[in-house]
Simulated scan of single mutants.
Amino acid sequence: MSEALATQDEALSRLLAYVFSGAIGPPEGKGVGYALVEAKPTAFSWLASLEDIDGPPAPVDRYLIKIDRLSRDICPPEHIVLSEIELAEAAFAATGQHLVSSTRFTNGALSISYKVTVQESLDIAYVVQLRHHGCVASMDVLMASISRMIDPQILPVPPVYPIPGEMQRQVATGIGRQIPRLIPGVMASSIYPRMSHEERLIIVQKMALAFQACWRIQLPEHHLIGELIAATIDGQVVLKIGPDRHYGLGGPFPTVREYLRAYIRSSLVALEKQQGIEEYKERFLGHIRDFVDNRMYNVPTRYRRGHPHRCYARGHGPS
Rank of each mutant, 00 (worst) to 15 (best):
A4R: 13
L15W: 02
L15K: 03
Y18I: 07
V19E: 10
F20Q: 14
I24R: 03
P27E: 05
G33C: 01
E38D: 03
K40Q: 06
P41L: 10
A43K: 15
L47V: 04
S49A: 13
L50N: 10
E51M: 04
D54S: 13
G55N: 05
P59H: 08
D61Y: 04
Y63M: 01
K66A: 09
D68H: 11
R69D: 02
R69P: 02
S71C: 02
R72C: 01
P76D: 15
H79M: 00
I80C: 03
L82G: 00
A88L: 00
F92A: 01
A93Y: 00
A94V: 00
T95E: 00
Q97T: 02
L99V: 10
N107P: 06
S111Q: 09
I112W: 01
V116P: 01
Q119F: 01
Q119T: 08
E120F: 04
L122G: 08
D123E: 09
V127S: 05
V128S: 00
R131E: 12
M139W: 05
D140H: 10
S145P: 04
M149E: 13
P152Q: 15
I154V: 15
L155R: 03
P158C: 08
P159E: 11
P162R: 06
P164A: 01
R169F: 01
G176H: 10
R177D: 02
I183N: 04
P184W: 12
M195Q: 07
M195E: 06
E198D: 08
L201G: 12
Q205G: 06
M207V: 13
F211R: 06
Q218C: 07
L224S: 14
T232K: 09
G235N: 04
V238A: 09
K240D: 09
G242W: 04
G242S: 08
D244G: 02
R245W: 07
G248L: 12
L249I: 11
R257N: 13
R261Q: 14
Y263A: 15
I264Q: 13
S266N: 12
S267T: 15
L268Q: 08
A270N: 13
A270M: 13
E272Y: 14
K273P: 06
G276K: 11
E279W: 07
R283Q: 12
G286I: 07
I288H: 06
D290K: 14
F291N: 06
V292R: 10
D293V: 09
R295I: 12
Y297L: 11
Y303N: 11
R305Q: 15
H307C: 14
H307A: 14
P308Y: 12
R310D: 08
R310G: 06
A313G: 15
R314P: 03
R314Q: 13
G317F: 05
S319D: 14
